[in-house]
Every structure is written in structure tokens, then in C-alpha cells.
């Protein structure tokens, strides 16, 4: 696999309508989500509101509800939806032959 992407595992390791994390030493975890339609997204695991772990929220449609105060965060853009304002950095993801790859550069930023 090329050096720009990190192969983090099989798509099937992420529960549908759920998420898993990638632990980043010295920084925020990356939360990797899988929607009911089987799409995979990754965000910094940190709500723009009070830094709740988005990976622990309920995934519905294309959004996740933060477990701390129920902010809804878009999985594709990281933007807070509805009345709330704020944004969580997104991490580019691609799927290759059933494997999930996340962008190395964005992951490094999470560690910075």
C-alpha cells in the first residue's frame, strides 16, 4: 500500500451504524464510522462542542449524535448540523478491496 494511506483493517470490523477508533499516540483518536448504507467516514474523535467522543455516539443517516450533549455532527464534513455551530476535522477515507485506508497526513495532524 502506498505511504500516503494507513491500512486500518477490514470494513467488516466496523459495526453497521457504529464506529471504531484508531488510537493516535500523543493526540486525538480517529473515529471511523460505518453508516446503514455501508459508507465509511473518519473524523477526529472530538466533538467541536465539549470534546465528546463522537465514536461513542448513535449513528443515524449521515450523522452521528455526540454522546455528551446530543450535538449532531455530519460524518462527511464534520460540521455541526441544525442550530449548533462548529466543525470537527475530517480524515479522508478510501476503501480498497474491503480494506479501510485513512489519510496518513490527516492522521499525523491529529497527533500534532
Amino acid at each position: 500500500m502506498t505511504g500516503d494511506w494507513l491500512d486500518i483493517g477490514w470494513v467488516d470490523e466496523i459495526p453497521v451504524r457504529g464506529s471504531r477508533t484508531v488510537q493516535v499516540t500523543g493526540g486525538d483518536d480517529i473515529a471511523v464510522f460505518r453508516t446503514a448504507e455501508g459508507k465509511v467516514f473518519a473524523l477526529r474523535d472530538r466533538c467541536p462542542h465539549k470534546h465528546g467522543r463522537l465514536s461513542q455516539g448513535i449513528v443515524h443517516g449521515g450523522a452521528v449524535a455526540c454522546p455528551l450533549h446530543n450535538w449532531r455532527i455530519s460524518l462527511s464534513t464534520g460540521e455541526a448540523l441544525g442550530e449548533d455551530k462548529g466543525c470537527t476535522p475530517t480524515v479522508p477515507v478510501k476503501i480498497d478491496a474491503g480494506r479501510v485506508l485513512i489519510c496518513r497526513a490527516s492522521t499525523l495532524k491529529a497527533a500534532a
Binding site: 471504531r20 477508533t21 488510537q23 479501510v100 492522521t107
Partner: peptide, 10 residues
């Protein structure tokens, strides 16, 4: 369990 771990230096 996390799906994977990443340490920038290592």
C-alpha cells in the same frame, strides 16, 4: 478495542 494504533515516530 481500537481498530488500530498509530504512533507517529514508531
Amino acid at each position: 478495542a481500537p481498530m488500530a494504533r498509530f504512533t507517529p515516530q514508531e
